[in-house]
């Protein structure tokens, strides 16, 4: 269910664009935020309905853009580690292996307590400070094993 807050957000978005349809991407993102990073079938239907689109359209959008997590179970902290070239040259693989061991999951998985999800991603535009990762909305750069430990222990 879209919360009143999310609806207010979406309503605000509609003025930004010439067509209601233009608001569909940010609207879906708001809906996902509201559910701590997960997008439900109901949200997809409701956003479509709110904007005046067939639900197929929201399904298309969430399937195309990688930042939507439709019908997935993303943990409280979504750790995305860049594995593209610049990061890889700077030992990103090693960081990923370390995280896999530390969290006891493979990349692509969520820990049992639903606290962490680990994903390997393509370039995040932070190549000069490789290796790097993104946790929810924040970037963490120039990673080393000890820095990773510190970052994780500082999460709320």
């Amino acid at each position: 269910m879209l919360t009143e807050e999310t609806k207010t957000h979406i309503e605000g978005l509609l003025n930004k664009y010439k067509t209601r349809r233009s608001a569909v991407m940010p609207a879906l993102m708001h809906a996902q935020k509201q559910n701590a990073g997960n997008l439900t079938e109901e949200d997809m239907r409701e956003v479509a309905d709110y904007i005046g689109l067939n639900p197929v359209v929201t399904n298309e959008i969430v399937g195309f853009y990688t930042m939507y997590n439709p019908l997935k179970d993303i943990g409280t902290y979504h750790i995305q580690v860049c594995a593209n070239l610049s990061c890889s040259l700077r030992q990103a693989e090693f960081i990923i292996e370390y995280l896999e061991k530390k969290l006891d999951i493979k990349s692509g998985e969520t820990t049992k307590n639903k606290r962490y999800t680990l994903t390997r991603v393509e370039c995040l535009g932070s190549c000069g400070t490789a290796p790097m990762m993104q946790i929810n909305d924040d970037y963490f750069e120039d990673l080393t094993v000890s820095k990773v430990d510190e970052i994780l222990s500082n999460l709320d």
Partner: peptide, 20 residues
């Protein structure tokens, strides 16, 4: 929302219009 191709200028426009 996560698609490199949206850097291509016409794909960018489609994305701005609420499409893939």
């Amino acid at each position: 929302a996560g698609a490199y191709i949206c850097g291509e200028e016409t794909a960018l426009l489609d994305s701005l219009e609420g499409r893939r």
